[in-house]
Design a protein around this nucleic acid. Structure first.
Lengths: 346, 346
DNA sequence: TGTTAGCACTCGAATATCTTGAGTGCTAAA
DNA sequence: TTTAGCACTCAAGATATTCGAGTGCTAACA
């Protein structure tokens, strides 16, 4: 068990190091006003803390820096986020969500932008899982005799569209029938049930009433599968470059490459879903390459159901307290905002 | 006027430097098989070329590197692109455009991806200016009593949509009238005429037949203005990081920052429109910050009308010949592909 | 007159050497 | 248990040294 003094010293070191990115020496701590023990004492405590694995030395005669374990302790026990809600933050976040935006995508983008701007870290926003979304209407608008565009509108106001070739041997009336059947069968049923419906009932009806339906059916069902990488928004990747831990170009390249592959980020963020606030520190992250990267995630909800998550990516040497406060409030704001947006019947 | 030998030397230096990124010395050139004059002679010629401003020395006892003026000469006179069409390129580009893609956006993305992959430079693709596009259909689909989504389909198959609040005091029948008027008036008229039509005829009709039209009219007309930054696609920004001229983090940051501001890139690329192939070298570019950046642009056309441009951004130390070949062919392929895509009546 | 061999000179880059100072660990005394 | 004191460590910065690729110039040559 750590003594009160040891905790204090650990905290001091983390706070210092987060700010300066320089190893923290015993003397600099002993100079603090509220410290009435000497540098030598601190050195002894530091040695103990190091032995326990909370601190490290970059080299034998340098000051200490926190280890991952040290950050972990700091985050888990030394932070009390709830108390410390400076008003400044609240209001500015509130303002963002009060300015009624009616497009989900716009809200997402804005969230990512504000998150990264306020923290100077990279922000990731995962769009809401639309598994409960229902089809509002499917329309097919012919562009010519050979092509048409299919438009799908969900009750959340999301619009998806796809241009496709009209099969040569398909008549206009067949096309109409096709659309009618899909509309009748799918309207108001949630997206997640589509696949089942498609392969049973609908397939049967189509076979019965529409000639040459296979090709078009195939084209469109593929097209309307929700696309993962359109659901993920970044912001502030350039902020990384300002951090001293990224003075090395190769590291930046790796990091940006990793971010570019949205699938990876998606699955990582998605795994965090339904877990509320999460702080991953350094190698705790799946991607061992990024030893000195931390990631904070939070989830947001619509009407109380968790539907997505947002995240902040920065150096392990992160301003956890501030970042956690901000991400929490953003998640709350996002929840409120989206809930309002989706409650058309209000 | 430069002698044949001087031209040869300049070319040799550019070719060498492009490959190695190291200053080129007289001896390394004299070792070439097809050179039968000595290093000393080359040194003399080099001194002359330097005096004329085609070459530079990073420091007084180093080899020479090409100046912007040198590159310019190289590009304008020493390159004959047309002859040298290795088949490898042609077929792989053709393949890309042969795989029938029916979404304009998909074609653009793919073009950007292939461009950057083949060249290892940053690619920019500016979507086709749709000034001649015509409205196919405007639809409004109510989501609830308070909200609706407006969907606009152009004859090119482009779909634009916007969620908006239905004004409280507007009835369903008014909403229908509103849509009908817009459809009647705008269908088949090109986008560039809308603004005029809107403010004259349509405004008049609306005032006459629809109550409370102002708010909604205003919401939607703003929403359907084409958005610049959705029209521009990048790819391969990470390629920059591999270039030795970008070993400095600050430089990368500036560059990426510049690219992130799509408006700038857009206007630069747009200005190149209707000029065919363009090569900007170093400080010839508007942005003097990027002294050692070159940019190659080419335009593409639909049915012979230039509608957009594509570009490659790389170090001045660029493989101009190869890059020009590739971008030219991509532009051609894009033109063919888009022309086919837009010719629904074929 | 153009070309070339030869040679002294230049200067960046790599390597080694020195200096400094912040920081430590340990010991012995309070 | 705490602290003053002191020897010791080591990265980082400053300085010096070496090395070699490359130049410019001169004088001889074809």
């Amino acid at each position: 068990m750590l003594s009160r003094r040891q905790l204090y010293i650990l905290q001091a070191i983390v706070d210092d190091y987060v700010q300066t990115a320089e190893p923290v020496g015993s003397r600099s701590i002993s100079k603090r006003e509220d410290v009435d023990f000497s540098a030598a004492t601190i050195r002894n405590e530091m040695a103990d803390l190091e032995e326990m694995g909370f601190l490290m030395k970059p080299h034998s005669s340098s000051g200490r820096i926190p280890s991952h374990k040290g950050y972990r302790l700091y985050v888990d026990q030394l932070l009390n986020v709830t108390e410390n809600n400076h008003l400044g933050l609240i209001t500015s976040v509130q303002q963002l969500f009060d300015s009624r935006v009616s497009e989900v995508e716009a809200v997402m983008r804005k969230t990512a932008a504000v998150l990264s701007e306020m923290t100077n870290y990279v922000s990731v926003v995962l769009g809401p899982a639309m598994s409960n979304t229902k089809l509002k209407q499917l329309q097919i608008i012919p562009l010519s005799t050979t092509q048409a565009v299919a438009i799908l509108v969900t009750d959340s106001g999301h619009v998806e569209n796809r241009t496709f070739d009209i099969p040569r041997n398909m008549s206009i009336s067949d096309l109409e029938k096709f659309v009618n059947i899909l509309n009748e069968q799918l309207t108001d049923s949630p997206i997640k049930q589509w696949e089942a419906l498609m392969s049973n009932e609908i397939e049967r009806l189509l076979r019965q009433h529409v000639d040459h339906y296979e090709k078009i059916h195939q084209d469109l069902s593929a097209a309307f599968k929700p696309k993962v990488n359109e659901q993920i928004f970044y912001n502030g990747m350039l902020n990384l470059l300002a951090q001293p831990e990224f003075k090395d170009v190769e590291k930046i390249r790796q990091m940006l490459e990793w971010l570019e592959d949205k699938k990876e980020v998606y699955s990582l963020l998605n795994a965090m879903n339904s877990k509320g606030l999460t702080v991953k520190i350094g190698e705790e992250n799946r991607f061992e390459l990024f030893d000195d990267i931390s990631m904070i995630t939070a989830t947001y909800a619509i009407d109380g159901d968790t539907v997505g998550s947002i995240g902040l990516i920065g150096p392990t040497r992160m301003q956890y307290e501030r970042a956690i406060q901000i991400i929490t409030q953003m998640a709350d704001g996002l929840s409120t905002s989206l809930t309002r947006l989706y409650r058309h019947d209000a």
